[in-house]
């Protein structure tokens, strides 16, 4: 099939003309099962070398290529052309993710995003001496499963940049940072959970979340983002982390 890309372009070096604009590209002989990322490569490699975007793994695991495709955040490498073409010209519209400064074409400044990530102390804290036998700390598989869902996060920013609360106020830590905090707060081995809950109970923490629910469908790793945020809210309200997540309702790792 033939398709048309409608791409939001921005060249920061175009002098006084440095304004974002839309540009269309036509591609022939596209397979419906080709992926959007491959087709962006075809545009870049066959038609316009200046088209700029981030990508690496091309298998949905590195988190480089979150983009707004037809108005929804997705990883370009995980979307098949047949699932997003619309209209008579088989159009696919691609823009940078929203809420972070655009640097060039589809490339945005990720620094504010990573700054929020770092705010929640996204690392394991346990100050007890390690077991005397020199081996691993013990944990039951059930305790391990409780935070399994949020360990999937690849920091692609699709959730945070789909969130109206974040668009309205860039100081909000955003769903991704909360997901990362959740992964540690509910890890039975971790001792930093109180400090993280304290950070997230600040005005720019979890309470900026208005449960709009854009984040969950945006997540390419199928993390139940809104649910994770809810669990953190509950932990703050109750001042404890036990009993918040019912093991029987842990999101299945299998995603339809």
């Amino acid at each position: 099939m033939d398709i048309t890309f409608r791409i939001r372009r921005y060249n920061p070096e175009a002098g006084g003309k440095a304004k974002p604009y839309w540009q269309e590209f036509e591609l022939k002989d596209v397979e419906p099962t080709n992926r959007v990322l491959e087709m962006l490569h075809r545009v870049k490699w066959e038609q316009d070398g200046t088209l700029s975007f981030r990508r690496s793994c091309s298998s949905g695991i590195c988190g480089s290529d979150a983009m707004r495709i037809n108005g929804r955040n997705m990883l370009a490498c995980k979307v098949l052309v047949r699932d997003v073409v619309t209209g008579a010209k088989n159009t696919i519209q691609v823009e940078p993710i929203l809420g972070l400064p655009v640097l060039k074409d589809l490339i945005v400044d990720m620094e504010p995003f990573f700054a929020h990530y770092r705010e929640v102390m996204p690392y394991f804290i346990n100050n007890d001496p390690v077991p005397a036998n020199g081996r691993e700390r013990l944990q039951s598989q059930e305790d391990r499963d409780i935070f399994d869902d949020t360990t999937n996060c690849i920091l692609c920013a699709a959730c945070t940049t789909s969130c109206p609360s974040f668009w309205a106020n860039g100081k909000y830590v955003g769903p991704a940072a909360i997901v990362q905090a959740h992964r540690f707060i509910f890890d039975s081995r971790d001792q930093g959970w109180k400090d993280r809950l304290a950070v997230l109970s600040e005005p720019n923490g979890v309470w900026r979340c208005r449960t709009i629910y854009n984040c969950t469908p945006a997540c390419p790793r199928h993390i139940e983002v809104t649910r994770a945020i809810g669990e953190v809210k509950l932990a703050i309200q109750r001042g404890k982390r036990e009993g918040i997540i019912d093991p029987a309702t842990i999101p299945s790792k299998f995603h339809g």
Binding site: L138, R144, D148, R189
Partner: peptide, 23 residues
């Protein structure tokens, strides 16, 4: 052996055996 045990000490969420060790 040591390197992997140290990864666990850094918080790596390994799957577990029934007695709680790294699976």
């Amino acid at each position: 052996v040591d390197a992997i045990v140290e990864l666990e000490h850094m918080g790596l969420p390994f799957d577990r055996t029934p007695d709680g060790k790294i699976s």
